[in-house]
């Protein structure tokens, strides 16, 4: 019995993407290393994303604090506000929201850039110019996304907590030292490291999906738009799936 067409194309796509990922591991760690392009991509992917990530992080911390306060007052535990916001941001909201913003900005940008290069034959031109385009374009971008997202998440968490500190001070008065003492007292090492480790996987997924969609772009400019769009959709979905898997794994391992 033949599978429905949608299932067939889903399985085809999954297979192609697995092969693409396999090619990354097969070629990515062999010389010639594209170190200067990797640094350039780190600058574009990391540094240039900082204003957006910082702003969303700040708003996230501020809003979360303002939304949580009434509920905590109802239960008479308003003093736990810094601890609660700190745990929520560091363990879950910071990594996931930052990864989603990252997927929207970087996933679409990589998908559109490589897609456009593909349809205008720039990738072929690169190959003719003695360059392995897969290493030069794909490996550098995937590695840069994998390395830079954890850095962005740590910075975003810090900015979020600062936003939360300001949020607390809208209705009450808490010193900077006291606020952060309460946050860090509530956090343990097992709150931080699984959250940081999963961001490497988020970054890898966003970079890989963006590159796969762009590198395999078809049908001219329409295909470029479709690549950028599906890069965001698929990588955002993967962020949630990876998050689910990591939470299950840490739960099974008793890291709570």
């Amino acid at each position: 019995m033949a599978l429905p067409k949608t299932w067939q194309s889903f399985l085809d796509e999954t297979g192609d993407m697995s092969r693409f990922t396999g090619r990354f591991f097969a070629q990515g760690f062999k010389p010639r290393y594209e170190f200067s392009e990797f640094i350039h991509q780190c600058f574009i992917i990391g540094f240039k994303s900082l204003p957006l990530i910082g702003l969303t992080g700040f708003i996230m911390g501020l809003v979360l604090t303002m939304q949580l306060r009434p509920s905590l007052i109802d239960y008479g535990v308003e003093s736990q506000l810094p601890a609660m916001v700190g745990i929520a941001i560091v363990r879950e909201i910071g990594p996931v929201v930052t990864a989603l913003i990252f997927a929207g900005k970087i996933g679409s940008s990589i998908g559109a850039e490589l897609g456009s290069m593909k349809v205008t034959e720039q990738i072929d031109a690169m190959e003719v110019s003695g360059t392995n385009p897969f290493k030069y374009l794909v490996v550098t971008r995937v590695l840069a996304a994998t390395v830079m997202l954890p850095v962005l998440v740590i910075l975003s968490d810090a900015i979020s907590l600062y936003g939360s500190y300001l949020g607390v001070n809208i209705r009450a008065t808490t010193s900077f030292q006291l606020f952060f003492k309460q946050v860090f007292d509530a956090l343990s090492f097992s709150d931080v490291w699984p959250a940081v480790i999963k961001t490497f996987f988020f970054g890898f997924a966003v970079g890989m999906v963006g590159c796969y969609k762009g590198y395999n772009s078809r049908k001219g400019t329409e295909g470029v738009g479709r690549s950028a769009n599906s890069a965001v959709v698929v990588s955002s979905l993967l962020v949630f799936i990876i998050d689910l898997v990591v939470v299950q794994v840490t739960d099974l391992l008793g890291i709570n």
């Binding site: 034959e121 720039q122 072929d124």
Partner: peptide, 29 residues
Amino acid sequence: RVKVGFLFQSNALYDSMTVRENLEFPMRR
């Protein structure tokens, strides 16, 4: 490929590079 020049139909100039960088790219690579 060093000895064979290929002029692409779409020109295939690298959009993110200046004309100088476009010309230096094959020499560097």
